[in-house]
Design a protein around this nucleic acid. Structure first.
Lengths: 223, 223
DNA sequence: AGTTCCATTTTGAGAAATCAAAATATAGGG
DNA sequence: CCCTATATTTTGATTTCTCAAAATGGAACT
């Protein structure tokens, strides 16, 4: 009984929610899952009860849901496919990292193992995708390294963008235009919680100010 | 209202059946369509009635169905995607032409226009796929197929041997013994890419199997 | 405790695609 | 012209996924 695209999407959303919670035992609330998948709350409840019956998730009514071991493995496979595809579209097909998400979202459910492993080989077994997100191995292991964001890193220190925690194309294009895409260096000059803003000094010595919500999506490592 | 994968498959099957019939006005019988798509006859009837209502096909109860102008355009797009993907998998990804069909069958329903045109450009706008089948243009035009060997001619169709592209005496004697010398009539019953073989039904109603390399040397014309 | 608010679950319904099996139409042979 | 074989359509049911809206649970604050 191989999982449908729909099931794969629920598992992937759950996996990513759990990674964000940084706690394997934590339960993801149904409302959050529903909006991540893009369905009405009642739909998520129905689906999750079915997934619990087939052993892919552990469901605790009114509290939330978490992936089982089997569910985690499946979700990691989906995420592996998604991220390898994104890397392939950028590196091999010359597409922009701002526009590959939608294509990958579709392709991840249909590429064969044969094809995905061929992509992996052509790319030289990459460890991260164009957004800096780590790619799970064929066994489902994912390097879970810790990131600071522009909201949490030390001030006046050289840092390098490593990852962007948002797939919205408009946001990604904004980052690209402002020299904030993965790999680029910058410093945080100041934060103003009253103004809800963060001031940056980018690679080209340009000073820009972005909101805290945007800043939290730009993950970095100290140089 | 963009068509589902299912609808695309019905349209594609219809398109290919009509090409095989070599007659744009001909009606494809429901039974043939059903078995091409791989569903029960009643299922095809239900689907075709829905497609007729949305203007993609012209349906004549008990007689059969043909594509409308809109349906033809859509089917050609699907076929274009399928064949470009096959060519891409062989030329760019180094897969064998014997194993790309299944992948293409899935991918053809999810690749974006952006991605398919990128593939087309990378391939240098090819006119045929790895099987020698013509690739429709973005406008939906497709060059008529020049069937020239037992490897490329339509199945279950009377053809006549016109020429043998090999001068090896042993091979020619083999052809003579099997009633495959120029002037003789036959039909191709099946091709098996896994077995690298082609099954023929010769003039004397005898069934024989030859390799694809041999088949490609036997040039024919459709009777 | 009572009340209010929010999240969650339940309910009832519908769209898309399918099948098996019964009913019916068409065509061909006697 | 009838009768039969075959193809096609109809019928009734099923699966998967979805929603809106009603019902209910849990928590939090007087």
């Amino acid at each position: 009984m191989l999982p449908s695209s729909t099931v794969e999407n629920y598992l992937k959303a759950l996996y990513q929610a759990q990674v964000a919670l940084e706690n394997d035992k934590a339960l993801v609330p149904m409302g959050q899952l529903a909006s991540a998948v893009g369905v009405a709350p009642g739909t998520a409840t129905t689906m999750i009860k079915a997934l619990a019956k087939s052993g892919l998730v552990e469901y605790e009514p009114y509290l939330g849901v978490r992936l089982s071991t089997a569910g985690t493995a499946l979700a990691a496979m989906v995420l592996r496919r998604h991220r390898l595809i994104e890397q392939f579209l950028v590196e091999i097909m010359g597409m922009s990292w701002t526009e590959v998400h939608e294509d990958a979202e579709k392709l991840e459910h249909v590429v064969s193992d044969r094809l995905i492993e061929r992509m992996d080989a052509m790319l030289g077994h990459p460890s991260v995708d164009p957004h800096g997100d780590p790619i799970p191995t064929p066994d489902g292991d994912m390097a879970p390294h810790r990131y600071h964001s522009l909201l949490t890193c030390p001030l006046h220190t050289q840092v390098k963008v490593t990852r962007v925690a948002d797939q919205d194309a408009t946001f990604l294009r904004f980052l690209e235009a402002q020299r904030l895409k993965p790999g680029q260096a910058l410093e945080v000059e100041a934060r103003d919680s009253a103004a809800d803003s963060v001031q940056l000094l980018t690679e080209g010595q340009r000073r820009i100010t972005i909101g805290t919500k945007a800043a939290s999506k730009v993950l970095i490592e100290v140089a």
